[in-house]
């Protein structure tokens, strides 16, 4: 984590401790939410989009200003069929505008798109996710999951277990896993089921689409007084995705800038999050656009508007925010 980010975190933490939560509504004026408005908006989201639910999270991490059973919102197992970068490539290939200097917000715009960097169109049409590599961002390595972490030598090779496989076929209860002298092996002795796995009664594996999935959660950020979105990714075999790899599913304009990797306020571990510093301003803009069209925004719809805005940051994660608002083209 960058030092300035650390200092800011410490500052933010202190301010959060000494200031009380917002109680007066400033939804229309500043685009922010009070705690009770967050609960109202959350309740509305859960009732209209039931794939979302309230969670209480780790008891030790509960925030006293939120009800214990309504600490944060989560929707699990959301498919993400392709990488956000591949969407941008398509846009570029179609001749869209391209930000030439990605490191700098003041970069030049190219209007004719980039040449298709050695990737044939055919290749991109392949359905398998493994083929969708990110050509733009060479700093991200494609390690599929925690399996391929840095200290590979510490993690036992899965091949070691394959011997056991045959033994289960032939003799279910005995001599399983004699190559691993662990409690685990002893458990296997006890628990091996009586018969073999009948592959004949299962559908062909080929029909099953392997895709990344996400758990998307929304917490209340007391400092910025806005909701905050967190992403927990899983690879094609449902193993935890390293947060760095999550950035592949974030629109490249936001990756490592507005989307950072931090500690989740209610869950263990590091998770990717859309930093809330601009949320209030963006929401204020959306609200202004709505009001200029004579639509009176209601605070219980806040999260729908918010999630619609978040969709521009994570365009390929198909979470649910069904509700039709006419936001026009100037939503951000």
């Amino acid at each position: 984590m960058v030092l300035s980010q650390k200092i800011h975190e410490a500052f933010k933490g202190t301010v959060e401790r000494i200031t009380g939560p917002r109680t007066v509504s400033a939804f229309k004026e500043k685009g922010v939410l009070s705690v009770s408005e967050f609960i109202i908006a959350g309740d509305n989201l859960v009732s209209k989009c039931p794939t979302w639910s309230w969670e209480s999270g780790e008891p030790s991490k509960r925030k006293p200003y939120l009800p214990s059973e309504k600490q944060y919102l989560i929707t699990r197992n959301v498919p993400c069929l392709r990488r956000a970068a591949s969407v941008e490539e398509e846009y570029e290939a179609a001749g869209g505008e391209v930000l030439l200097d990605n490191e700098d917000n003041d970069g030049w715009l190219a209007t004719h798109g980039k040449p298709n960097e050695g990737k044939s169109a055919e290749e991109e049409n392949l359905p398998s996710m493994e083929n969708l590599e990110i050509s733009k961002n060479s700093s991200i390595k494609l390690t599929p999951s925690y399996f391929g972490g840095e200290d590979e030598e510490d993690i036992p090779d899965m091949a070691d277990f394959e011997e056991a496989d045959n033994l289960i076929e032939t003799d279910p209860a005995e001599e399983v896993c004699d190559n691993a002298d662990t409690t685990f092996a002893r458990y296997l002795h006890v628990a091996t089921l009586q018969s073999t796995y009948l592959v004949a009664q299962e559908p062909d594996d080929d029909n099953i689409l392997r895709t990344r999935t996400y758990d998307v959660s929304i917490t209340y950020d007391k400092y910025y007084q806005t909701p905050r979105v967190w992403l927990t990714g899983y690879d094609e075999s449902r193993m935890l995705l390293q947060p760095e790899l999550v950035l592949e599913d974030v629109s490249q304009d936001h990756a490592r800038k507005t989307v950072t990797i931090e500690d989740h306020p209610h869950l263990p571990g590091k998770h990717a999050s859309v930093h809330p510093c601009r949320h209030g301003a963006v929401m204020k803009k959306i609200i202004d656009v709505l009001m200029s069209r004579g639509v009176e925004p209601e605070v219980d719809k806040y999260l729908f508007l918010f999630l619609k805005f978040v969709a521009s940051v994570i365009p390929t994660i198909e979470y649910d925010y069904t509700m039709d608002f006419d936001l026009g083209s100037s939503s951000h």
Binding site: I155, A164, D165, L240
Partner: peptide
Amino acid sequence: KVPRCISLAK
């Protein structure tokens, strides 16, 4: 037919 393994050292 092999067990899974996850490292949470990070």
